[in-house]
Simulated scan of single mutants.
Amino acid sequence: MSVKPLGDRVVIKKVEVQEKTKSGIVLPGTAKEEPQIAEVVAIGAGITNDEKKKDEIKVGDKVIFSKYAGTEIKVDGEEYTIVKLADVLAVVQ
């Protein structure tokens, strides 16, 4: 099953970032905040059909999104978040 976002929405998958303290201790996922960096999985037609917006973001881009934005869903055991394009703050290059 796949998810196709509607309008100006984007489906993203959070990227696990392994963090280390200054002393070199690796923090497990439960001891740190949720990542705000994600990979774009799908883009809605409202973005791809808009001449101004279509070049801003594409599938496969790594993006930074608002901390409390979006709706989390689970599809085929994978966790995704659906956010509005306005909640995407930057593309990581």
Rank of each mutant, 00 (worst) to 15 (best):
S2Y: 01
E51G: 09
G70N: 05
S23Y: 03
V11W: 06
R9E: 13
A31D: 10
A86I: 03
S66I: 00
V63S: 08
P28C: 09
P5R: 05
V59F: 04
T21P: 01
A31I: 00
T71E: 13
I25P: 00
K53T: 09
K22D: 08
A86E: 14
A86K: 05
V11M: 12
P35Y: 04
K62V: 03
Q93E: 12
T21W: 00
A86L: 05
A42V: 01
V11P: 01
G70M: 04
S2F: 03
P28W: 00
K20M: 06
E56S: 11
E16F: 05
Q93H: 11
I37F: 06
Q18K: 07
V83L: 12
I64D: 02
G29A: 12
Y80G: 13
V15P: 01
I37C: 10
Y80T: 10
V63E: 04
Q36S: 07
K22S: 10
T30E: 13
G24Y: 03
V15F: 02
G24H: 02
K22A: 11
K54M: 07
E78I: 11
Y68L: 15
A42R: 08
V17Y: 09
M1H: 01
K32V: 14
K4W: 01
L89S: 05
L6R: 05
V40T: 08
T81D: 10
I64V: 15
G77E: 05
K84F: 04
V75I: 11
T81E: 06
Q18P: 03
V3N: 12
V75H: 08
K4C: 10
L85C: 01
I37H: 03
V40Y: 08
E79D: 12
D8I: 04
L6S: 14
E16V: 08
I64F: 11
K32T: 13
N49H: 07
T30I: 04
M1A: 09
G44H: 06
I43G: 14
L85S: 14
I64C: 11
P5Q: 12
V91G: 08
G24L: 11
S23L: 06
K4T: 13
K14R: 13
Q18A: 13
A38Y: 01
V75E: 15
D61G: 02
